[in-house]
Design a protein around this nucleic acid. Structure first.
Lengths: 199, 199
DNA sequence: TTAATTTCTTGACTTTTGTCAACAAGTTTT
DNA sequence: AAAACTTGTTGACAAAAGTCAAGAAATTAA
């Protein structure tokens, strides 16, 4: 598990910025994570299953999605250094209403829910770190809500450009469209209008 | 401050269900809250100000909103026993991008950010409680995101009925409309169609 | 590399929702 | 209680986005 040290460095930076952790806690965390390589299209979590693991996305791109009628809605797009769970399912250990899959070959470090609970029991001070992290993700979600309330495909797509520009080429457009809650055709037209303006 | 005992009972029920708290912690919390009565239309937090307080809504109805172009968007509707903050502003103590106001005469118990931090310092175990609560609110927010992705005014309004039926009469329709991200006229028409179907 | 499959683009058309405006119904205020 | 103001309803129309379909472009598989 020594190799975890390097892979999890960004995670530990994050945690130590919140509050430096004692050696024992660091090791407990380190030893609870397992490194996994996943391929494009691999499903980390399938709808109906319990999200028993938390993933730290060491490198790559994931999306969560769920069925809406006949169509598939992309609910989140997660990139390198993201902490990934299906919130409702992980927090309460009940079946997930969404799936999570890899958009490209990715590397993740994963920790089971049970291991995380044991860490909480052994190191109550770790609750501080996860409280802060949850607050941060909470706030990001607020911003996503704000985006969905924007009227106009143009404005929604601009929000996407502002926040996900680096990953633009790696995300199929149909997923971006459903993430923005617009039809793929509408996104296509919006993009072509925007590029004409730039000429 | 004795009277706080009764007013905060629902809050303590919530906290004790997560994990029973020691007497000292209970008292520290109790003594940090201040009881305030607010009137319909009172503004608890104004856009641009820092959200320095957390409120526990003992009784009443609040909404958060922000300007979008020329219009006002209602972002949240909060009722009795809700914990109320402006997330981004409270967590990071930076100016809020939204306002919070009372939709009817309400009673709140309020605790300053600083007092809360002192409690965290004196009782690190309290992080567990707020972590769990943040997780719960996080999940509720996911459901709101799910709602906004629903197509059709009808479906959005039905979501509202499912989740806020009890408060329907106390919330002006124009606020419901902006909460659902539809024009007030559209909501009015949707409602009349629905009531015709029921005949 | 070619064939097969998937994704993206574009056009024509439909549906939904937004906008503006006038009026009705409620609330407040005086 | 009447006047002033706000909120909700309804109609006519405009704008935006969704749907269906066909073909182009790009990916993936053979």
């Amino acid at each position: 598990m020594k190799e975890n040290t390097a892979l999890l460095a960004p995670l530990f930076t994050l945690l130590n910025e919140i509050k430096p952790m004692c050696t024992e806690l660091r090791e407990a965390i380190m030893n609870s994570f397992e490194y996994v390589e996943i391929k494009k299209g691999d499903v980390l979590l399938a709808e109906g299953h319990i999200c028993t693991n938390l993933w730290f996305l060491v490198n790559g791109l994931l999306r969560s999605f769920h069925e809406m009628g006949e169509k598939e809605i992309t609910s989140r797009i997660m990139f390198t250094n993201h902490i990934v769970i299906s919130p409702g399912s992980f927090f309460t250990q009940t079946p997930a209403t969404e799936s999570i899959e890899a958009l490209c070959n990715s590397e993740v470090a994963t920790i089971p829910f049970r291991s995380l609970q044991k860490i909480y029991e052994s190191f109550p001070e770790f609750n501080l770190h996860t409280r802060i992290i949850t607050e941060q993700y909470f706030y990001k979600q607020e911003q996503r809500l704000y985006m969905l309330r924007k009227h106009g495909a143009k404005e929604k797509y601009n929000f996407f450009l502002d926040n996900y520009a680096d990953y633009l080429k790696d995300i199929p457009q149909k997923y971006i469209a459903s993430f923005l809650n617009i039809a793929p055709e509408t996104l296509s037209r919006t993009r072509s209008k925007l590029s004409k303006k730039r000429e």
